[in-house]
Protein backbone atom coordinates (compact mmCIF):
# COMPACT_ATOMS: atom_id res chain seq x y z
CA UNK A 1 0.00 0.00 0.00
CA UNK A 2 1.29 3.41 -0.90
CA UNK A 3 0.65 6.20 1.57
CA UNK A 4 0.28 9.62 0.12
CA UNK A 5 2.78 12.30 1.23
CA UNK A 6 -0.08 14.18 2.86
CA UNK A 7 -0.78 11.21 5.09
CA UNK A 8 2.86 10.57 6.01
CA UNK A 9 3.05 14.22 6.89
CA UNK A 10 0.06 13.84 9.22
CA UNK A 11 1.36 10.65 10.79
CA UNK A 12 4.83 12.09 11.35
CA UNK A 13 3.38 15.23 12.84
CA UNK A 14 1.18 13.27 15.25
CA UNK A 15 4.09 11.05 16.27
CA UNK A 16 6.32 14.00 16.94
CA UNK A 17 3.73 15.81 19.04
CA UNK A 18 3.01 12.60 20.93
CA UNK A 19 6.71 12.28 21.81
CA UNK A 20 6.80 15.88 22.98
CA UNK A 21 3.78 15.38 25.19
CA UNK A 22 5.23 12.15 26.59
CA UNK A 23 8.41 13.99 27.48
CA UNK A 24 6.72 16.70 29.47
CA UNK A 25 3.95 14.55 30.91
CA UNK A 26 6.05 13.02 33.73
CA UNK A 27 7.05 16.49 34.91
CA UNK A 28 3.44 17.53 35.28
CA UNK A 29 2.39 14.22 36.82
CA UNK A 30 5.19 14.39 39.40
CA UNK A 31 4.42 17.97 40.33
CA UNK A 32 0.67 17.35 40.44
CA UNK A 33 1.10 14.27 42.62
CA UNK A 34 3.41 16.05 45.04
CA UNK A 35 1.18 19.10 45.25
CA UNK A 36 -2.01 17.07 45.75
CA UNK A 37 -0.58 14.74 48.34
CA UNK A 38 1.86 17.11 49.99
CA UNK A 39 -0.18 20.31 49.88
CA UNK A 40 -2.32 19.46 52.91
CA UNK A 41 0.85 18.80 54.93
CA UNK A 42 2.20 22.31 54.40
CA UNK A 43 1.54 24.64 57.29
CA UNK A 44 3.37 27.38 59.14
CA UNK A 45 4.30 24.87 61.81
CA UNK A 46 5.58 22.39 59.21
CA UNK A 47 7.94 25.01 57.78
CA UNK A 48 9.17 26.53 61.03
CA UNK A 49 9.07 23.87 63.76
CA UNK A 50 11.49 21.17 64.85
CA UNK A 51 10.57 17.59 64.05
CA UNK A 52 8.92 15.66 66.88
CA UNK A 53 8.01 12.06 67.73
CA UNK A 54 10.83 10.49 65.77
CA UNK A 55 10.20 12.80 62.81
CA UNK A 56 6.61 11.59 62.41
CA UNK A 57 5.21 14.94 63.44
CA UNK A 58 6.29 18.53 63.84
CA UNK A 59 8.13 20.40 61.15
CA UNK A 60 11.18 20.24 58.89
CA UNK A 61 12.71 23.59 59.85
CA UNK A 62 16.24 22.28 60.54
CA UNK A 63 16.31 20.49 57.19
CA UNK A 64 15.30 23.67 55.34
CA UNK A 65 17.89 25.75 57.17
CA UNK A 66 20.49 23.01 56.72
CA UNK A 67 19.91 22.89 52.97
CA UNK A 68 20.13 26.67 52.61
CA UNK A 69 23.23 26.78 54.79
CA UNK A 70 24.90 23.95 52.88
CA UNK A 71 24.08 25.41 49.46
CA UNK A 72 25.40 28.84 50.48
CA UNK A 73 28.72 27.46 51.66
CA UNK A 74 28.93 25.32 48.53
CA UNK A 75 28.56 28.41 46.36
CA UNK A 76 31.19 30.21 48.41
CA UNK A 77 33.68 27.66 47.08
CA UNK A 78 32.18 26.80 43.70
CA UNK A 79 31.54 30.29 42.29
CA UNK A 80 35.02 31.83 42.57
CA UNK A 81 36.85 28.68 41.50
CA UNK A 82 34.41 27.89 38.71
CA UNK A 83 34.17 31.38 37.24
CA UNK A 84 37.89 32.11 37.48
CA UNK A 85 38.82 28.75 35.98
CA UNK A 86 36.48 29.43 33.07
CA UNK A 87 37.92 32.93 32.59
CA UNK A 88 41.38 31.42 32.47
CA UNK A 89 40.40 28.72 29.99
CA UNK A 90 38.58 31.08 27.63
CA UNK A 91 40.60 34.27 27.88
CA UNK A 92 44.13 33.32 28.80
CA UNK A 93 45.01 29.70 28.06
CA UNK A 94 46.63 29.16 24.70
CA UNK A 95 45.46 26.14 22.79
CA UNK A 96 47.87 23.45 23.93
CA UNK A 97 47.66 19.85 25.11
CA UNK A 98 47.27 20.73 28.80
CA UNK A 99 44.31 23.02 28.14
CA UNK A 100 42.54 20.33 26.11
CA UNK A 101 43.26 17.80 28.84
CA UNK A 102 41.74 20.08 31.47
CA UNK A 103 38.65 20.62 29.33
CA UNK A 104 38.17 16.90 28.82
CA UNK A 105 38.62 16.37 32.55
CA UNK A 106 35.88 18.90 33.30
CA UNK A 107 33.48 17.25 30.90
CA UNK A 108 34.21 13.90 32.52
CA UNK A 109 33.76 15.35 35.97
CA UNK A 110 30.20 16.23 34.96
CA UNK A 111 29.58 12.58 34.11
CA UNK A 112 30.79 11.07 37.37
CA UNK A 113 27.90 9.50 39.34
CA UNK A 114 27.03 11.53 42.40
CA UNK A 115 27.56 8.63 44.81
CA UNK A 116 31.19 8.57 43.69
CA UNK A 117 31.49 12.21 44.70
CA UNK A 118 30.01 11.23 48.05
CA UNK A 119 32.63 8.54 48.60
CA UNK A 120 35.38 10.83 47.39
CA UNK A 121 34.25 13.50 49.84
CA UNK A 122 34.16 10.95 52.63
CA UNK A 123 37.65 9.77 51.83
CA UNK A 124 39.30 13.14 51.25
CA UNK A 125 37.51 15.73 53.38
CA UNK A 126 35.89 13.74 56.19
CA UNK A 127 38.62 11.20 56.87
CA UNK A 128 41.90 12.31 55.36
CA UNK A 129 41.60 16.05 56.06
CA UNK A 130 39.88 15.27 59.38
CA UNK A 131 36.97 17.64 58.81
CA UNK A 132 34.58 15.05 60.15
CA UNK A 133 30.97 14.85 59.01
CA UNK A 134 30.41 18.57 58.68
CA UNK A 135 28.96 21.38 56.61
CA UNK A 136 32.47 22.16 55.40
CA UNK A 137 33.10 18.63 54.12
CA UNK A 138 29.65 18.43 52.53
CA UNK A 139 29.93 21.84 50.91
CA UNK A 140 33.35 21.05 49.45
CA UNK A 141 32.03 17.78 48.05
CA UNK A 142 29.02 19.51 46.52
CA UNK A 143 31.26 22.29 45.21
CA UNK A 144 33.40 19.81 43.30
CA UNK A 145 30.25 18.28 41.86
CA UNK A 146 28.85 21.69 40.86
CA UNK A 147 32.08 22.99 39.33
CA UNK A 148 31.61 21.46 35.88
CA UNK A 149 28.15 23.03 35.57
CA UNK A 150 29.47 26.47 36.50
CA UNK A 151 32.64 26.20 34.43
CA UNK A 152 30.81 24.99 31.35
CA UNK A 153 28.10 27.65 31.45
CA UNK A 154 30.59 30.42 32.25
CA UNK A 155 32.76 29.35 29.33
CA UNK A 156 29.74 29.43 27.08
CA UNK A 157 28.71 32.86 28.35
CA UNK A 158 32.23 34.23 27.81
CA UNK A 159 32.48 32.91 24.29
CA UNK A 160 29.19 34.53 23.27
CA UNK A 161 30.75 37.95 23.95
CA UNK A 162 31.85 39.13 20.50
CA UNK A 163 35.57 39.08 19.83
CA UNK A 164 35.25 42.64 18.56
CA UNK A 165 34.57 43.90 22.12
CA UNK A 166 37.94 42.55 23.17
CA UNK A 167 39.70 44.02 20.14
CA UNK A 168 38.11 47.43 20.67
CA UNK A 169 39.07 47.47 24.33
CA UNK A 170 42.64 46.33 23.64
CA UNK A 171 43.01 48.79 20.78
CA UNK A 172 42.27 51.60 23.23
CA UNK A 173 45.26 50.52 25.29
CA UNK A 174 43.37 48.59 27.97
CA UNK A 175 45.33 45.71 29.48
CA UNK A 176 44.16 42.11 29.15
CA UNK A 177 42.64 42.06 32.62
CA UNK A 178 40.96 45.47 32.17
CA UNK A 179 39.44 44.16 28.96
CA UNK A 180 38.08 41.08 30.70
CA UNK A 181 36.88 43.08 33.67
CA UNK A 182 35.18 45.93 31.78
CA UNK A 183 34.37 44.70 28.28
CA UNK A 184 33.85 40.95 28.63
CA UNK A 185 32.56 40.03 32.10
CA UNK A 186 29.72 42.60 32.28
CA UNK A 187 28.34 41.23 29.03
CA UNK A 188 28.74 37.62 30.08
CA UNK A 189 27.30 38.17 33.54
CA UNK A 190 23.69 37.08 32.89
CA UNK A 191 24.90 33.83 31.33
CA UNK A 192 27.25 33.23 34.24
CA UNK A 193 24.47 33.91 36.77
CA UNK A 194 22.19 31.47 34.97
CA UNK A 195 24.86 28.79 35.23
CA UNK A 196 25.41 29.52 38.90
CA UNK A 197 21.70 29.22 39.67
CA UNK A 198 21.45 25.94 37.77
CA UNK A 199 24.46 24.58 39.64
CA UNK A 200 22.93 25.76 42.88
CA UNK A 201 19.63 24.01 42.24
CA UNK A 202 21.44 20.83 41.38
CA UNK A 203 23.45 21.01 44.60
CA UNK A 204 20.28 21.62 46.63
CA UNK A 205 18.64 18.45 45.37
CA UNK A 206 21.49 15.94 45.65
CA UNK A 207 21.39 13.16 48.23
CA UNK A 208 24.32 10.89 47.52
CA UNK A 209 27.15 13.43 47.94
CA UNK A 210 25.82 14.60 51.30
CA UNK A 211 25.02 11.14 52.60
CA UNK A 212 28.44 10.47 54.14
CA UNK A 213 29.79 13.97 54.35
CA UNK A 214 27.29 16.16 56.18
CA UNK A 215 23.74 14.84 56.50
CA UNK A 216 22.39 14.09 59.95
CA UNK A 217 19.74 11.42 60.42
CA UNK A 218 17.94 13.30 63.17
CA UNK A 219 19.22 16.54 64.66
CA UNK A 220 16.49 18.83 65.92
CA UNK A 221 18.62 21.95 66.35
CA UNK A 222 20.25 24.54 64.13
CA UNK A 223 23.96 24.41 63.23
CA UNK A 224 26.43 26.59 65.12
CA UNK A 225 29.50 26.38 62.90
CA UNK A 226 31.01 25.00 59.70
CA UNK A 227 31.96 21.87 61.57
CA UNK A 228 28.43 20.89 62.58
CA UNK A 229 26.33 18.28 60.94
CA UNK A 230 22.98 19.40 59.58
CA UNK A 231 19.80 17.81 58.37
CA UNK A 232 19.21 18.42 54.66
CA UNK A 233 15.97 18.08 52.72
CA UNK A 234 16.85 15.37 50.18
CA UNK A 235 18.34 13.09 52.80
CA UNK A 236 15.52 13.83 55.21
CA UNK A 237 13.07 12.78 52.52
CA UNK A 238 14.99 9.56 51.99
CA UNK A 239 14.93 8.87 55.73
CA UNK A 240 11.20 9.59 55.98
CA UNK A 241 10.45 7.32 53.06
CA UNK A 242 12.56 4.32 53.95
CA UNK A 243 13.92 4.43 57.50
CA UNK A 244 11.02 5.57 59.67
CA UNK A 245 7.91 3.38 59.81
CA UNK A 246 4.40 4.78 59.70
CA UNK A 247 5.12 8.33 58.58
CA UNK A 248 1.99 10.05 57.34
CA UNK A 249 2.14 10.56 53.54
CA UNK A 250 1.48 14.29 53.84
CA UNK A 251 4.70 14.65 55.85
CA UNK A 252 6.68 12.77 53.19
CA UNK A 253 5.05 14.55 50.28
CA UNK A 254 5.12 17.85 52.09
CA UNK A 255 8.89 17.53 52.43
CA UNK A 256 9.14 16.66 48.74
CA UNK A 257 7.00 19.67 47.89
CA UNK A 258 9.26 22.02 49.85
CA UNK A 259 12.36 20.60 48.13
CA UNK A 260 10.86 20.74 44.65
CA UNK A 261 9.54 24.21 45.38
CA UNK A 262 13.01 25.47 46.33
CA UNK A 263 14.60 24.00 43.22
CA UNK A 264 11.84 25.30 40.94
CA UNK A 265 12.10 28.80 42.38
CA UNK A 266 15.85 28.76 41.74
CA UNK A 267 15.30 27.59 38.17
CA UNK A 268 12.69 30.27 37.68
CA UNK A 269 15.30 32.83 38.66
CA UNK A 270 17.60 31.43 35.98
CA UNK A 271 14.83 31.73 33.38
CA UNK A 272 14.08 35.32 34.36
CA UNK A 273 17.74 36.33 34.25
CA UNK A 274 18.12 34.78 30.82
CA UNK A 275 14.97 36.46 29.51
CA UNK A 276 16.08 39.90 30.69
CA UNK A 277 19.48 39.31 29.11
CA UNK A 278 17.89 38.48 25.74
CA UNK A 279 15.87 41.67 25.83
CA UNK A 280 18.90 43.80 26.61
CA UNK A 281 21.24 42.16 24.13
CA UNK A 282 21.57 44.36 21.10
CA UNK A 283 24.74 43.50 19.27
Amino acid sequence: MIISPRHTQKIAFSLLSLCTVLVIAPVFVIIALIVIRGGPGISWEFLTAMPRMGMKAGGIFPAIVGTLYLVSVTMLFAIPFGVLAAVYLVEYARDHALKRFVEVAIVNLAGVPSIVFGLFGLGLFVVFLKMGTSILAGALTLAIMTLPVIITSTKEALSTVPRSFREVSLSLGATGWQTIRHAVLPNALPGILTGIVLGLSRAAGETAPVLFTVAAFYLPRLPHSFFDQVMVLPYHLYVLSTQVPNVKPEVQYGTALVLVGMVLILNLFAVIIRARFRRRKQW
Binding site: S164, F165, V168, S169, S171, A183, N187, Q282
Partner: peptide, 8 residues
Amino acid sequence: FALPLPLP
Protein backbone atom coordinates in the same frame (compact mmCIF):
# COMPACT_ATOMS: atom_id res chain seq x y z
CA PHE B 1 37.59 49.40 12.75
CA ALA B 2 35.79 48.51 9.53
CA LEU B 3 32.40 48.18 11.17
CA PRO B 4 31.18 50.67 13.72
CA LEU B 5 31.78 48.75 16.94
CA PRO B 6 30.35 50.63 19.88
CA LEU B 7 30.56 48.83 23.19
CA PRO B 8 27.16 48.09 24.80
